[in-house]
């Protein structure tokens, strides 16, 4: 199997949230990112943060059906992390001595823009979720995140039947929707 086939499999695993795939990507590429960050006035903790974010970007990409990697995974990760780190340094108004590494980079502006948008949506939803209170929060998480069956949820939350649980869920969803759009439209 050649490198690109192997990396293709690895990304397929990532899209399925396969732990061993995630672990392998960490093992193969984390140290590269760590030296990038540390050589540019960061710490190992910064590196771990940056790599985590890059993994989320990669996951988002890998999940989309039209995704194809046109370079080595290493180059992609390096480029993403490099941009993310430079951006963070700029945000902190820190003095940037940009050491141009020998690593090849590709333009990733588009990816990061999409990522930022998704990240933003995520935090709005997270915020809305944190505001609706219980039992709404657990109810919605059980159905929409853990993808449980209505019957199971009814039993667990102590509703007499699935229809009652469903009605409650809808009420919760209406509230969540209001909270979400209140902030979402503000930002737009």
């Amino acid at each position: 199997m050649n490198t690109s086939e192997q990396e293709h499999l690895l990304l397929e695993g990532l899209a399925k949230e396969d732990k061993s795939a995630i672990e392998q990507i960490y093992r193969e590429h984390y140290n590269m990112v760590k030296s990038l960050v540390i050589n540019n006035s960061g710490t190992a903790d910064d590196a771990a943060d940056i790599f985590q974010e890059a993994m989320i970007v990669l996951f988002e990409k890998a999940k989309s059906p039209e995704f194809e990697l046109h370079c080595l995974l290493k180059t992609f990760i390096y480029s993403i992390c490099r941009r993310l780190w430079l951006k963070r340094l700029q945000q902190q108004n820190r003095f940037v001595t940009q050491s141009e590494g020998l690593e090849e980079t590709i333009p990733v502006e588009e990816e990061l823009e999409t990522h930022e948008k998704k990240q933003n949506d995520f935090s709005i939803m997270e915020n809305a979720m944190s505001k609706i209170g219980e039992p709404c929060k657990s109810l919605l998480e059980a159905y929409y995140i853990q993808k449980k069956q209505m019957q199971e949820i009814a039993t667990h939350f102590g509703y007499t039947n699935a229809d009652n649980a469903k009605t409650q869920k809808y009420k919760c969803l209406v509230r969540l929707k209001k909270l979400f759009f209140a902030q979402y439209k503000n930002v737009e």
Partner: peptide, 15 residues
């Protein structure tokens, strides 16, 4: 949006 949120949240947990 909710579905994306769920996916992202599950992935973060795995991560």
């Amino acid at each position: 949006e909710l579905d994306n949120y769920g996916t992202a949240k599950n992935f973060r947990h795995t991560l």
